[in-house]
Nucleic acid binder design. Structure first.
Length: 1088
RNA sequence: GGGCCAUUAGCUCAGUUGGUUAGAGCACAGUCCUGAUAAGACUGGGGUCUGUGGUUCGAGUCCACAAUGGCCCA
C-alpha cells in the first residue's frame, strides 16, 4: 500500500516537512558520504557578503548553483559544496560608518581603527541568519558549516602567499598613475569597481574657456603667428570642459594635428578653435579670418588661468604637488598635438591637467608638462586660490566659473547631462587623479589570460569572445591596493630609512620586502609587535616591525589593504589555507568544473579568479561557467529599495514554494537573458507543472491502492500495449535529451522538455489509459498500465530531482522508498536515469503524434458541426498524403476512433466532395532551378486551375503552365476542406465527419449523457470512487427506453447495483436535469 | 562615444542550415470534455516578427544603419 495522497496539496507545507526530514536524517551529509571516493566534480561557490538581505536574484543564481551539482552528484560524482563568505571591503566599512555617523577617514582614525574594524567584523554576519534561511529553504545544498571566510587569519595568510608569488615574479609594483578615486571613501577604485558605478544623466557644468595667447613666443607656424599678431585684439584659444575644478591644474592645451583650425572674429573677440565645431560652439555670428592645420598651433604659449605658485595669504600653500617638469625650457603652458583630440565634440582644443586624467597624465609625461595637484585626497581644493581653496571639487565648480567670468576668461557656460562614474557604494562622484598605488602587472600575462579563456566554456557563449574576451583584450594592470582599514593588509614592508635618508638603504630609493607567510614574518630578524590573540588585520599588523637586512633600519608595513575582489579571486587557494595546509584538498579541488554567477561578475569574480589562476598556475580556474542575466520587476524595471519594487524571496517561498520558484527561474527564460519577474508567473508554474505532476501521482496512488498494485511483484517487463510502449519510448527519449542538455549546461531546455513530457503523460497517456485502471478484474492489461505509469513516475521524479528537490523527494519516499526497502534513503542518493535506447521507438512516437493530430482535427470538426463528443457518430474520413502516414493509419485507427467517438474511420478516396485544391511551388526545389523566373512561376500558379494541375500531375506525371513544364516533386498540391462544416484540416491532413445521427446513435448518446450526469452526481453527493449505489429515475418514455436498453452499460459505469424507474427513497441524493428538451429526475443512494 | 545582449500576440517565451499558412502557454470570450486534475479539448479575437534600407527568386532568420530597453566599457 502506498500512503494515500491528498490531491489538495500545500507545497510550502510539504517542503517544510521534507526539510525536516533531510535535517533529521542528515541526508545532505549522507549524500556526500555516499559519493566518497567517487570521481570529483568541482563546484566553487562565489562568496556573497552577508551584510544585506538576500534577494530574488540571489535565489536565481543559487538555483542554478544547485541544479548542476545535484545533477552531477546523481551521475555518481562527488561534488563538494563548500560555502563561502565575502567579508572584507568598502561595503562593510560603509555600513559601519553610517552606524557610527562617521564621514571621513580622519574621523575613523580618531574613532580608532581597532574599534572600527571590530565593528566591521560584527556587521559582516548581520544577515547571516537570513542567508542561511533562504539557502536552506530553497533547497540549495551547501556546506555552511565548513564555509571559507575571507577575514579568517588562515584565509588572509593564503592571500599573502599569493602576493608573495607574484612579488617574486616581479609582477607587483608601486605606480604613480591616475586612478579613479573616491574622495569620500578616500581610496582608489579598481577599474572593475568603477564599472559598477556609472550613472547616465549626470548633470554637470559645461564651460568654454578662453586661454589668452602670449605674443612673441617661440612656437607656432609662421602663418599662425602672423595671423595672431595681425589680429586687432588679443587672441584666445577656446577650450571646453565639464570639470571646471580641474582648470587650476591646467598646464597645457592639446589640438589635433590633422584637423583644420580657424581664427574667427565674433562679438569683437578673436578666437581659435576647430573649424568643424564653430557652429556648435559659438553663440553668435562669426567671421572666419584664417584657417590652418592643427599642427601649426603646436608650440604656441598661453597665459595660465591661475598661478599655483603664488603666495597668497590665507590660502593653502603650496598645492599638494607642484612639479615643474621643464628644466631647459622655462616657458610653460604650451599648445601640443595629440591623436586623442577629437573634433566630434567640444572645440577641438582639449585642456590638459596632468594630475586629473589618464590621458592628461600620459600626455604630461610625454610633453614634459608641469604637474599641478590642486586636490587633497578628500577631494578638497588645496592651493593659493582665494574663494575656493578648501571647497570640495564639485562645489568649487561654480566659484571657479564665476571667477573666470569676472576676469573675462569665460566664453560660455551651461549645463550638460552625460555619463559619469560614481563610487559604487557611496555614490560620491569619482575624481581621477594621479597618486601612488600598488599594481599587479596583469598586462604581462595578457596573452595567457586570453589563451586560457579559450579553454573555458561560457554559457551563454557570446560572453567568451564578447564581454569577457573584450575585457581581457583591453586588460590594464590591476590596481589592487586600497587605502582603507577593513581588508586583508598588504604584506609589504618598507625600510623606514629609505624615505628618510634618500638613498641610504641598499642604494635603492625604496627598499621593500614581501613576506609570504606569518612564519616567514616571524623569522625576520628583530621581529616584534604582534599581539595575541592573533589577528592579522589592521591596526595590529601595523605594529609589526623587524630589522632591514640591508641597513638594519626598521621595516614597517605599508599602510594599504588589498582589494576585496582579490580576496574572492583567491578562494581556490585560500579556502584551503594552501599551501600552509591541505595541499591535497587544494589539488583535488582545482580547477573548478563549474561556477555560476550573474553577468556583473565578468569584471568581478569571474575576472579575479581567472587572473589569479593564470598568474599563479598559468591555467584557467574554471571549465564551465553559467553567466546569468539580471532580474527586473514585472514592468521591466530594475528592482531597488528606492522604487519599492523588490520582491522578497520569503513571500514567494511561503505562498508558492521553493520548487515552483526554482522551476520558474530555470524554465521561464534563457539563463543569460534579462528576465522580468512576477509572482503570477510562479503561480502559473504551480498550476501548469507542479499540479499536473502531483495529480498524476495522486491518481496513480489512488488506484494502485484500490487494486493493491505492488511494483515489486507486478512489474511488467514486456509491454504489448502500444500506448504503454509509446509512453516508455517517450520517457527514454526524454532521458536521453535531458542528459544531453544538462551535460551541456542547459538546464532550461532540459526542464522545458520535462514539462512537455509531464503534459503528455497526464493528458494523453493517463487520460487514454483511465478505463484500464477502472476495470474490475486484475488482468494483465491493468497491471501493465500500473507498471508503466509507475515506471514513468519514478523515472520522472529522478529526472526532476535536481530541479525541484522537494516534490521529487516527497514522491520518491512514497512510491519507491515506500515499496522497496532496498531503495535509497533519499531520491538524491539515487543514480540519475540513463536511457534504454532500445525502448525508443521513433515510429511509434510518430504514430502517436499523428493520432493526436487526427483527434485534434476530429474534435475541431465536431466543434464546427456543433456536435458534442459524447454523441457517437457513424463515420469519419481522413485524408493522409504521405505514405508513412497512410501506413501508420492502421496502427492508430482504434485510438482515434475512441478519441473522437466515431464508429468507423476510413481513409478517404474520393476527395472531390469535401475538398478543394491549391497548388503551390515547392520552393526549395524550384528556387535553385529557376532563380529569377520564380516570380513569374508563382504568378502563373496562382492564376492556374489547381484541380486541373493536380489531375495532370497525377495522370501525366507533369503539368505545363506558360513556358514551363513542372514535375510533381516541384509542386505541392494542397487540399483543404471545402466550406463544409464538418471538415477540419491542417496542411495535408484532413478529417471529415459524417454528422448524420441515426436514432440508434442518438440513444447511445443519451446513455452516455446519463452516465455523465450520474457520475457528476456521485461526486456531488460525496461518494467515494469505489462506493456502490442504487439508482432511481423518473423520465419520459423515450429516455426510459434508453435507460432500459443501456441498463447494463449504465450500471457498470456508475457502479449501480440497481437502476429502476420510480421516485427516490429516504436519504437519496437527487437532481433534476434537462436532457434533449425533456426533464428527468435522477437519484443515487449509497448501498449498505 | 564604443562593445555585448534583447526586441516575435495584452503577458512569458519557441522558431532548427534563409523556403510555402510565424507557433506554444497564460489572459479574454464562447462551446465542449471530465469518476485524478486548480487540469484538458476546440473555436474566436489578438502579429506591418521594433523600424529603415540592402543581399536573394524568396528574409522573423543573413548584412548595414537606426530606435527602445538592459548590461558593460570610455
Amino acid at each position: 500500500m502506498f500512503k494515500p495522497v491528498n490531491s489538495n496539496v500545500n507545497f510550502p507545507e510539504m517542503e517544510t516537512k521534507i526539510l525536516g526530514f533531510w535535517k533529521e536524517k542528515g541526508i545532505f551529509e549522507k549524500v556526500a558520504e555516499s559519493r566518497k571516493g567517487a570521481p570529483e566534480y568541482i563546484f566553487y561557490e562565489g562568496p556573497p557578503t552577508a551584510n544585506g538581505n538576500p534577494g530574488i536574484h540571489h535565489v536565481l543564481s543559487r538555483t542554478f548553483k544547485d541544479v548542476i551539482p545535484r545533477y552531477w552528484t546523481m551521475r555518481g560524482f562527488h561534488v563538494p559544496r563548500k560555502a563561502g563568505w565575502d567579508t572584507h571591503g568598502l561595503p562593510v566599512e560603509l555600513e559601519v560608518e553610517k552606524e557610527l555617523g562617521l564621514s571621513s577617514k580622519t574621523e575613523i582614525e580618531k574613532y580608532g581603527i581597532a574599534e572600527f574594524n571590530e565593528r566591521c567584523r560584527k556587521s559582516v554576519f548581520r544577515y547571516l541568519k537570513e542567508w542561511e534561511f533562504v539557502t536552506e529553504r530553497i533547497g540549495f545544498w551547501l556546506d555552511l558549516k565548513n564555509a571559507y571566510i575571507t577575514m579568517d587569519n588562515s584565509y588572509m595568510e593564503s592571500c599573502w602567499w599569493i602576493i608573495k608569488q607574484l612579488w617574486d615574479k616581479g609582477l607587483v609594483y608601486q605606480g604613480y598613475k591616475v586612478t579613479p578615486h573616491c574622495p569620500r571613501c578616500g581610496t582608489s577604485l579598481s577599474s572593475h569597481e568603477v564599472a559598477l558605478g556609472y550613472k547616465d544623466d549626470t548633470d554637470d557644468p559645461s564651460v568654454h574657456i578662453k586661454f589668452k595667447i602670449v605674443n612673441g613666443g617661440t612656437g607656432g607656424s609662421r602663418e599662425v603667428k602672423s595671423a595672431v599678431n595681425m589680429a586687432p585684439g588679443p587672441v584666445y584659444l577656446l577650450a571646453w570642459t565639464t570639470t571646471p575644478w580641474t582648470l587650476p591644474g591646467n598646464t597645457g592645451l592639446a589640438v589635433s594635428p590633422e584637423a583644420e583650425y580657424a581664427l574667427v572674429e565674433t562679438g569683437g573677440e578673436y578666437l581659435i578653435m576647430a573649424r568643424a565645431l564653430l557652429d556648435s560652439s559659438l553663440t553668435g555670428e562669426y567671421t572666419v579670418l584664417n584657417t590652418f592645420p592643427g599642427a601649426g598651433l603646436q608650440g604656441l604659449r598661453y597665459e595660465p588661468l591661475f598661478d599655483p605658485w603664488a603666495d597668497i595669504p590665507g590660502t593653502s600653500k603650496p598645492c599638494l604637488a607642484v612639479r615643474r617638469q621643464q628644466t631647459a625650457d622655462k616657458e610653460t603652458n604650451p599648445v601640443i598635438t595629440g591623436d586623442f583630440v577629437s573634433t566630434d565634440d567640444g572645440t577641438g582644443i582639449v585642456h590638459i591637467a596632468p594630475a586629473f586624467g589618464e590621458i592628461d597624465f600620459e600626455t604630461g609625461k610625454t610633453h614634459n608638462l608641469d604637474l599641478v595637484e590642486t586636490l587633497d585626497l578628500q577631494g578638497k581644493v588645496c592651493g593659493p586660490f582665494p574663494g575656493f581653496d578648501g571647497l570640495f571639487a564639485k562645489a568649487a565648480d561654480p566659484v571657479i566659473t564665476e571667477d573666470l567670468r569676472s576676469r573675462g576668461l569665460l566664453y560660455r557656460s551651461g549645463r550638460i547631462t552625460h555619463t559619469y562614474p560614481f563610487c559604487w557604494r557611496c555614490s560620491t562622484p569619482l575624481l581621477y587623479y594621479a597618486k601612488s598605488s600598488w599594481y599587479i602587472r596583469t598586462t604581462a600575462i595578457k596573452d595567457r589570460l586570453i589563451a586560457c579563456n579559450r579553454e573555458i566554456n561560457w554559457f551563454p557563449e557570446h560572453i567568451k569572445q564578447g564581454r569577457f574576451g573584450d575585457w581581457l583584450e583591453n586588460n590594464v594592470d590591476w590596481a589592487f591596493s586600497r587605502e582603507r582599514y577593513w581588508g586583508t593588509p598588504l604584506n609589504v614592508w618598507r625600510c623606514e630609512r629609505s624615505a628618510e635618508h634618500g638613498n641610504a638603504c641598499g642604494g635603492a630609493p625604496d627598499y621593500f620586502e614581501c613576506p609570504g607567510s606569518l612564519g616567514e614574518l616571524r623569522d625576520k630578524p628583530g621581529f616584534s609587535g604582534l599581539p595575541e590573540p592573533l589577528d592579522l588585520h589592521r591596526p595590529f599588523i601595523d605594529g609589526v616591525t623587524y630589522y632591514c637586512p640591508e641597513c638594519g633600519g626598521i621595516m614597517r608595513r605599508v599602510p594599504e589593504v588589498i582589494d576585496c575582489w582579490f580576496d574572492s579571486g583567491a578562494m581556490p587557494v585560500a579556502q584551503w589555507h594552501y599551501p600552509m595546509e591541505n595541499a591535497d584538498n587544494f589539488k583535488k579541488n582545482f580547477p573548478a568544473d563549474f561556477i555560476c554567477e550573474a553577468v556583473d561578475q565578468t569584471r568581478g569574480w569571474f575576472y579575479s579568479l581567472h587572473a589569479l589562476s593564470t598568474l599563479l598556475f598559468d591555467r584557467p580556474c574554471y571549465k564551465n561557467v553559467i553567466c546569468l542575466g539580471h532580474i527586473l520587476d514585472a514592468k521591466g524595471e530594475k528592482m531597488s529599495k528606492a522604487k519599492g519594487n523588490v520582491i522578497v524571496p520569503a513571500t514567494v517561498l511561503n505562498s508558492q514554494g521553493a520548487d515552483a520558484l526554482r522551476w520558474y527561474l530555470v524554465t521561464a527564460a534563457p539563463p543569460g537573458n534579462v528576465r522580468r519577474f512576477s509572482t503570477e508567473q510562479v503561480t502559473e508554474v504551480v498550476r501548469k507543472f507542479m499540479l499536473t505532476l502531483w495529480n498524476s501521482y495522486s491518481f496513480f496512488v489512488t488506484y494502485a491502492n484500490i487494486d493493491n498494485f505492488d511494483p515489486a511483484v507486478n512489474r511488467v517487463r514486456n509491454l504489448d500495449v502500444s500506448l504503454d510502449r509509446w509512453i516508455v519510448s517517450e520517457l527514454n527519449r526524454l532521458v536521453v535529451k535531458v542528459n544531453e542538455e544538462l551535460e551541456s549546461y542547459d538546464p532550461t531546455t532540459a526542464a522545458r522538455r520535462i514539462e512537455e513530457f509531464v503534459d503528455r503523460l497526464s493528458n494523453w497517456y493517463i487520460r487514454r489509459s483511465r478505463r484500464r485502471f477502472w476495470k474490475s478484474e486484475n488482468d494483465a492489461d491493468k497491471m501493465a498500465a500500473y507498471s508503466t505509469l509507475y515506471q514513468c513516475l519514478v523515472t520522472l521524479i529522478k529526472l526532476i530531482a535536481p530541479f525541484t528537490p522537494f516534490i521529487a523527494e516527497e514522491i520518491y519516499q512514497n512510491l519507491e522508498r515506500g515499496s522497496d526497502p532496498a531503495s535509497m534513503e533519499s531520491v538524491h542518493m539515487e543514480a540519475y536515469p540513463s536511457a534504454d535506447v532500445s525502448l525508443i521507438d521513433e515510429q511509434l512516437n510518430a504514430d502517436t503524434e499523428l493520432a493526436m493530430k487526427l483527434s485534434s482535427l476530429g474534435r475541431a470538426a465536431r466543434s464546427k458541426a456543433n456536435t458534442r463528443v459524447r454523441q457517437p457518430l457513424a463515420r469519419a474520413l481522413c485524408r493522409l498524403r504521405r505514405e508513412e502516414e497512410r501506413q501508420a493509419f492502421a496502427r492508430i485507427k482504434e485510438q482515434v476512433m475512441d478519441e473522437i467517438n466515431v464508429k468507423d474511420l476510413e481513409i478517404m478516396n474520393e476527395e472531390g466532395a469535401v475538398l478543394e485544391y491549391e497548388v503551390k511551388p515547392n520552393l526549395p526545389v524550384l528556387g535553385p532551378k529557376y532563380g529569377i523566373k520564380m516570380g513569374e512561376i508563382t504568378r502563373l500558379l496562382k492564376a492556374a486551375d489547381a484541380r486541373k494541375i493536380a489531375w495532370d500531375l497525377r495522370t501525366r506525371g507533369e503539368a505545363s503552365m506558360g513556358d514551363f513544364t513542372l514535375l510533381p516533386q516541384e509542386l505541392q498540391v494542397l487540399t483543404r476542406g471545402k466550406g463544409g462544416y464538418a471538415v477540419a484540416a491542417d496542411g495535408d491532413i484532413i478529417v471529415a465527419l459524417d454528422t448524420v445521427i441515426s436514432p440508434e446513435l442518438a440513444g447511445e448518446g443519451t446513455a452516455r449523457e446519463l452516465v455523465h450526469l450520474l457520475q457528476t452526481m456521485r461526486r456531488s453527493a460525496g461518494f467515494d470512487v469505489t462506493d456502490h449505489i442504487n439508482t432511481c429515475y423518473s423520465a419520459d418514455s423515450e429516455t426510459g427506453r434508453v435507460m432500459e436498453q443501456y441498463a447494463e452499460y449504465i450500471k457498470q459505469e456508475t457502479l449501480s447495483l440497481s437502476l429502476v424507474a420510480g421516485t427516490a427513497g429516504e436519504g437519496a441524493y437527487s437532481e433534476t436535469h434537462r436532457l434533449g428538451g425533456v426533464e428527468i429526475t435522477l437519484a443515487v443512494k449509497k448501498t449498505g
